[in-house]
Amino acid sequence: MDLASTLPAAAFWLFAAITVLSGLMVISSRNPVHSVLWLILAFFSAAGLFVLMGAEFLAMLLVIVYVGAVAVLFLFVVMMLDINFVELRQGFLQYLPIGALIGLILLAELVTLGTAWTFGGDIALNAAAPMPALEQVENTAALGSVIYTDYIFIFQTAGLILLVAMIGAIVLTHRDRPGVKRQNIGKQNARRPEDAFELVDVEVGKGVPMPTKKG
């Protein structure tokens, strides 16, 4: 028994089993909040699989982006929803055929891809950059030196698409409603005591005239 080979193998089976099982629980658990929590576990064990493959940078990004941000928003939305569980279960059989059909098509496509995929013979020549051995270069540095040199335009385009999507989402959902009281921090900070009140010596039995409104 060699420790160096058994331990990663055992870890792989552990993480793979957890990923698949929690994936199943995502679609089979009744409570949507539980589903999201199982989804988080699936993301997390997928990150573990990335670490085993030596892709530690991708693993950390998966945890930071998907688990740390995207799944939190999922959880937010699902928790806020007032879900009727009985209603949720209705119509299951009605949607089953079309769901199964889509699943089958996806499975067929995956199988076709998996079996028919071949690498061209001259892949090493066509690769944009020669690949150094995994041990010699850090994961993060390797990714950075490819993304920011050979694929910089594709990378920037991806970023721009995300920006456009974000602006689009804001424009579509943002509505300027009249009558909303909004804070103006600059105006508040610019306010001085002189603008807000005045000191008046009140004579006994006279009272004070109504103040004139300022700015």
Partner: peptide, 25 residues
């Protein structure tokens, strides 16, 4: 002594929100 130690700390601290949001719910 992880090569991605800084990212690891960022990742774990971003997970910290789950304990709170789960307890709240």
């Amino acid at each position: 002594d992880l090569n991605v130690g800084v990212l690891y700390i960022l990742a774990i601290s971003s997970l910290g929100v789950y304990g709170i949001i789960m307890s709240g719910w």
